[in-house]
């Protein structure tokens, strides 16, 4: 099994993107109003990474997928109920703070330490996956830092595609400016891939996958280690909702011809 992969997917949990978000100040620093009440989902880009990992695993027998996730245990459990039916993985939960405001270097250090200690992980076969950014902090740095701490010398961000070749090398498509992809070929594992959307649709719910996953997920959650994140000198001066309320001129009574003329004039204006 030359291409048996050990894929570790780092994936946080984020508020369901449909929710209304409002920042508040808590004793532990900034947070979101009703943060523990808001429904949560697996980070959208990290979800792409997880589905791509599962797809690679089915094509490369002998591969394994770990899902490393840091968040409040209760929230992790709730999110597992929505994703554990989709693809098979081994959950590595870390009980820690929720949200986008904890410091990224500190988060990365905890993730890297956890991954380094994973029993059975062969780091020479490691593909470290995650989203290229999170929908919470949105920094796009955590995965890089984890890779750097683990000493991985090849990293790709904004990945939409990976094509694994028989010799173990792989071609990667990364998003770059102008709606294009940069094409690279990497000699092989280990590597870090921060995923954008990828090319896979969300997998269907499969009750059997769910049932099998749950046998390991619940015990893993019960044993989840608790992480305390350091601030690393980061302080928040202010956290607020952007004030972008505009005065909207509603044009109701113009014909399409008149609107078109007005628009063409507006388009041409500097």
């Amino acid at each position: 099994m030359p291409n048996a992969l050990h894929i570790v997917v780092c994936a946080g949990i984020v508020p369901d993107p449909l929710q209304t978000l409002e920042p508040v100040t808590t004793a532990a620093g900034p947070g979101l109003k009703n943060e523990m009440v808001l429904p949560a989902v697996l980070d959208p880009w990290a979800s792409s990474a997880l589905y791509e990992a599962a797809s690679l695993t089915t094509k490369n027998p002998g591969s394994r997928v770990w899902l490393v996730s840091l968040g409040p245990k209760a929230k992790l459990q709730a999110v597992m109920m929505t994703i554990a039916q989709k693809v098979a993985f081994e959950l590595v939960p870390i009980d820690g703070p929720i949200g986008g405001f904890p410091e990224a270097h500190s988060t990365a250090a905890v993730l890297a330490e956890t991954i380094a200690a994973l029993p059975g992980l062969d780091r020479s076969h490691l593909l470290l996956f995650g989203g290229w950014e999170s929908a919470t902090r949105g920094a796009g740095v955590t995965l890089q830092l984890v890779g750097e701490i683990l000493g991985i010398a090849d990293q790709f961000q904004g990945v939409d595609q990976i094509d694994l070749r028989e010799d173990g090398s792989f071609e990667v498509l990364e998003r770059v400016e102008g709606g294009k992809h940069q094409v690279s070929v990497c000699a092989g594992t280990p590597a870090v891939l921060g995923w954008a959307t990828g090319g896979l649709a969300e997998p269907r719910n499969n009750p059997q996958i769910g049932m099998a996953n749950m046998r390991t997920i619940m015990p893993a959650l019960q044993k989840a280690k608790v992480a305390k994140l350091e601030a690393n000198g980061l302080s928040y001066v202010s956290v607020s909702l952007p004030k972008q309320q505009r005065t909207t001129r509603v044009v109701k009574d113009l014909s399409p011809d008149e609107i078109a003329r007005e628009l063409v004039e507006w388009i041409g204006a500097e």
Partner: peptide
């Protein structure tokens, strides 16, 4: 869910 005795799938 935490009891591990039942699985709930939304």
């Amino acid at each position: 869910m935490a009891s591990g005795m039942v699985q709930i799938w939304p």
